[in-house]
Write a protein that binds this DNA or RNA. Structure first.
Lengths: 278, 278
DNA sequence: CGCCAACTTGAACTTAGTCAAATGTCGTGG
DNA sequence: CCACGACATTTGACTAAGTTCAAGTTGGCG
C-alpha cells in the first residue's frame, strides 16, 4: 500500500488486489495518521504545501518533533557568540533573530513563525552569530545536529525539502536587505506586513483580510531600520490612507491590492513550488 | 600513504615501512599535485584555510572545476526570474549579485571574488531570484546540479565544507543587512571595505595594507544603499581623515586600527574555523 | 581630437531621527 | 475600588543625514 500527498491531492495505489473494505480501512488509517502529523506540526504543513512527502518521510519528520520544550517571552533562547549545536523547530508562538551592535542598537534580521527553523545556520558554523528571542511564550522542538544529519541520510528527499525551506528563508533575508537599502519607510512597512501575511497564510494563520500579530512597534522599528517614532507615523499614514491597520495585536488589510501596488510586493519568491515535484 | 593539510600544516603518515628515498619521492609528488590544485583554484585555497581536505577530496574538488567558461564584464550571467539549474565557481575576476526593483533602482546583495560560488541558492529554488553581473571579465567553472550532488554523496566531508562556506556567505549577507539597517554612511563604508579586505586576504589577494578593487563608486552606492554622490563625499571624508583611500582601482588602509574602531568591525564571523576540524 | 564614463563639488530639498511630553492600557498591591 | 508603575503608543517641534539636481572635471581610448 503506497500513499503520498501531491500538491494537496492525496494519492494511493497498490500492486495487488485487495478487498474494497480492507483498502478503505487502510486508507482511512493512513489518512488519520497524516492529518494528525499535519495538524500537529506547522513545519509539516508548510513542507506539504509544496512538496510530496511519503508516509515514511512524514514519520521521520514527526520523530524530529520529539524533545519538545517551552520558552518564555523575552528571555533569549540563543545568545550571539554562544557556541551551541542544537537547532529548533518552532511549533507555536513567534520569535525573532537579531544582532546587537556594540553601541546598543539592534537589528532584527528575521521573524520566525510556527513551522520555521531556529538557528539552523548556527549548527553548521558551530557558533551562533546572532541572538534569538521569543516574542511570546513559545513551544519548540529541539533538534540535535546528529538527529538532523541522520534524518537527512535516511530520507534524502526530506533533506532536499528542508534545504529548500532554508533557501527560501535566505531569499527572504535578501528581500529584507533590498527593502532596507532601496525602499522608503512606507514601502518598507507595506512590504513587510504583506510578506508576513503571506508567510502566515502558508501555515493557516492568516489571509488576505489580515492576521493576528503580537509584534510591538519597537519590533517593527528594529526590523525595518527605523525609529519607533517614525514607525508610528508611518502606521498612522497607512491607516489614514485606508491601506492597512495595525492595532491591538492585529493587522487588517483595508485594501490589499493598493497595498501590494505601494509595496511593489511580488510574492514570487515565496510561492515557488518545491524542488521535488519534478 | 596518507596526506592532509591541516590548518596550513602538511601532515603525512604511512602504516608500513618504506625506504626514505621512496617516501620522499611520494611526498614530493603529492605536494606538487596539491600545490597545483590550490594554485589553480581559489575555492580550494579558501576551504583549505579552514578545513582539512584529503587528497581524494581535493581531487573531487578539482573535478568540479572542469567545464570552464569566460564571461565579459557587464553582461548579466544570470537574470532575475530566469529558470536555470547551473551554479558556478568563480575562478578569476569579480562579480556581484543584485536585485532590481520595478522602479529601476538596484540593490547589490553581495560581491563575489575568486573562490566564491555563484547562484548556489538558485539551484535549490530552481529559479534565480536575483541577477548576477560580472564586474570585470571573469572565468568561472560551471557546476551542474547533478555533479554537485554526486560529489556530495561521494565525499560527505567536502559536502559539509561547502555547506559551511555557504553558511558563511549567508552570515555575510546578514551582516550586510545589519549595516543597512543600523549603521550610518561612514560606518557602512568602513565596514564594507574592511570586510572585503578580509575576504580577499583569505584567497591571497589582499592584506592589512590594502587591495586592488575594480569597483566603481556606483557599485558601492548600489551595495550600501546610498546615492553615488554621497558615496563620493563619504570616501573623501575617510581619505581626508587618513583612514582609508579608495582611488584608481585600489583600496589603501591608511590606518587600519582606527578604521576597525570606526566600523566596529568584528571579523569573528569570517574567521571561524570550519566544521570538520573538531 | 572628441567622446564617454567615472568622478567631484555646491546648493536646495526631503526623509527620517532625536528630544520631549502626553495619552492609553494593563496588571499588581493596598 | 483606586493608585501606581511599567510599557506601548501618539503627537509636535526641531535637527541631522542623505538625496536630488545641476554643473563641472578628469582620464582613457577610438
Amino acid at each position: 500500500m503506497n500513499f503520498a500527498i501531491l500538491a494537496g491531492i492525496a494519492v494511493c495505489w497498490t500492486d495487488r488486489k485487495q478487498s474494497p473494505s480492507r483498502l478503505l480501512r487502510e486508507v482511512s488509517k493512513i489518512l488519520e495518521k497524516l492529518l494528525n502529523a499535519i495538524q500537529n506540526s506547522p513545519l509539516t504543513r508548510k513542507l506539504s504545501a509544496f512538496v510530496a512527502l511519503s508516509e515514511n518521510e512524514l514519520a521521520v519528520l514527526e520523530r524530529l518533533h520529539k524533545r519538545r520544550r517551552s520558552f518564555v517571552a523575552g528571555r533569549d533562547l540563543v545568545h550571539q557568540g554562544q557556541s551551541k549545536q542544537a537547532a529548533y523547530i518552532l511549533a507555536a508562538g513567534w520569535a525573532c533573530s537579531y544582532k546587537t551592535q556594540p553601541d546598543g542598537s539592534r537589528q532584527i534580521v528575521d521573524f520566525q513563525i510556527p513551522g520555521d527553523f531556529l538557528g539552523l545556520r548556527s549548527v553548521l558554523l558551530h557558533m551562533s552569530d546572532h541572538s534569538i528571542e521569543p516574542i511570546v511564550d513559545i513551544q519548540a522542538a529541539e533538534v540535535l545536529a546528529g538527529d538532523l544529519l541522520g534524518a537527512f541520510a535516511r530520507t534524502p528527499r526530506l533533506a532536499t525539502a528542508i534545504l529548500w525551506a532554508a533557501s527560501r528563508d535566505e531569499a527572504m533575508v535578501v528581500e529584507h536587505l533590498v527593502g532596507l537599502g532601496r525602499r522608503d519607510a512606507d514601502e518598507r512597512m507595506a512590504h513587510f506586513l504583506l510578506e508576513l501575511g503571506a508567510r502566515l497564510a502558508l501555515v493557516g494563520m492568516g489571509s488576505k483580510g489580515g492576521y493576528a500579530c503580537p509584534l510591538t512597534q519597537y519590533h517593527l522599528a528594529d526590523a525595518l531600520g527605523l525609529s519607533a517614532v517614525h514607525v508610528n507615523r508611518v502606521l498612522r499614514k497607512l491607516r489614514e490612507d485606508k491601506l492597512v491597520t495595525f492595532r491591538d495585536g492585529h493587522v487588517t488589510f483595508d485594501n490589499y491590492d493598493r497595498l501590494v501596488a505601494l509595496a511593489q510586493f511580488d510574492p514570487t519568491y515565496l510561492d515557488h513550488i518545491g524542488p521535488i515535484l519534478k
